[in-house]
Write a protein that binds this DNA or RNA. Structure first.
Lengths: 266, 266
DNA sequence: TCATGCGGCT
DNA sequence: AGCCGCATGA
């Protein structure tokens, strides 16, 4: 028996908006710790890890660990039927091959339940080692989103370079080149507007903007984003989910190909 | 060496939005006087003339006159990457075949530079004689925009007729006819809401609405628009750019063809 | 003012 | 074909 009651149902709606474009099907894992998901994107290039801790739910009952395979598109369709102020409850009976989403309007005048078939999905749960990063950048998530979008209009890849002074996002395309430098800045009115750089070692890595832009779909979940970089390691783009956990995206850097961008990207 | 610093960068963004649909490629001419452009639209029917006087820039350095050929679509893409509150600096080195747009966020925390390739464009710089006009109408730009859009849903051309009493915009189409009369009106709260008619001689001319609607893309640049008409002369639709100059559109009247609108428009 | 539908761009 | 931004209608 599983019963998770989330007063701020819009959180779950936003989570699905954030990952459904990247991942088609995934197992949601439920344990005493919380509600989590880990999945590769459909082209097996990026990885998404979601955690919603049990403490963040108003009511959290999970008798035994279960893994529920869902089609995220279908799940998203159902969650779109919940109002933004609705309370969402996720329910599943032991051994059932369905999950139920229940939506209660704030006034309790409307109660909806949507039942969705579960699917069997080979889960490839990778252990993700906690790594030390050469540089960690925290900045407003909207600014990061804007930068990724802007650079996409010029080129396909972004070089992210961190020095003590700031973080630079660069691209190059047919019509020209672009460099955007964000300086460290902690003297702002609101802490979420700060750009904070922790750097042990300068680092410069190249990533496909297409994936970065997908990651920024999580922007509504948090005012800030944290970008953790090390050479030879996948970048981690993390959006904290207030009181509950996080959504993290992992993406391997591209090996610099010296201008020779003619071959297709698998 | 060229370096033009424009504190109100959104002006330049709006200028590009105003002309990029009409003109594909154009030379920007830079001299001690200012930053200007003159170009025919891609079907060689309308003409755009832009002037941004040097005094309007916070910093204006132009060592010698140069003409920089730009693809306006690409330029517009880059300017879209500037925030509306950004300060924009246009830079070019002597003899360089690129131009650089630099965007500084108001807080100076973010500095972006975009480099764009220049192109060689045959410039056909027409001397435009200052003419005497039979009638000059000044009215709110939003109202003119609305009229052109509304008439477009009925017909393809607009007849603009000016008498002392007012200006009449008329069209005719398959579904019927439309006449919109704006009376002179100077007794308004704000001067930019006035409709003012200076008339030496009544005039009535016909224009293609398609071009008029393109011209109204400049509406965000000014609260008012000035329409100068003389029989046998191209109409001038002018939007003043505060403190800096203007953008003017010229369009030849159509020769009245007595209902016979079947033949294509070149 | 917010939500939906259409067109342009990637 | 899918996503984003603009425009329109409730």
């Amino acid at each position: 028996m599983l019963e998770l009651r989330l007063v701020q149902g819009s959180l779950l709606k936003k989570v699905l908006e954030a990952i459904k474009d990247l991942v088609n099907d995934a197992n949601f894992d439920c344990s005493a710790t919380g509600f989590s998901l880990q999945a590769m994107d459909s082209s097996h290039v990026a990885l998404v890890a979601l955690l919603l801790r049990s403490e963040g739910f108003e009511h959290y009952r999970c008798d035994r660990n279960i893994s529920m395979g869902m089609n995220l598109n279908n799940m998203s369709k159902m969650l779109k039927c919940a109002g933004n102020d609705d309370i969402i409850t996720i329910k599943a009976d032991d051994g059932s091959d369905t999950v139920t989403f229940m939506f209660e309007s704030p006034t309790q005048d409307k109660i909806a339940d949507f039942e969705m078939k579960l699917m069997d999905i080979d889960s490839e749960h990778l252990g993700i080692p906690e790594a030390e990063y050469h540089a960690i950048v925290r900045m407003p998530s909207s600014e990061f989103q804007r930068i990724c979008k802007d650079l996409s209009s010029i080129g396909d890849t972004v070089v992210i370079s961190v020095t003590k002074e700031g973080v630079k996002f660069s691209t190059r395309g047919d019509i020209g080149t672009a460099n955007i430098v964000c300086r460290q800045n902690t003297t702002v009115d609101k802490p979420e507007e700060a750009t904070v750089i922790e750097m042990n070692e300068p680092v410069s890595l190249t990533f496909a903007l297409r994936y970065m832009n997908s990651f920024t779909k999580a922007t509504p979940l948090s005012n800030t984003v944290t970008i953790s970089l090390s050479s030879e390691l996948p970048v981690v783009v993390e959006y904290k989910i207030a009181e509950m956990g996080y959504i993290r995206f992992y993406l391997a850097p591209k090996i610099e190909e010296d201008e020779d961008e003619t071959k297709p990207q698998a």
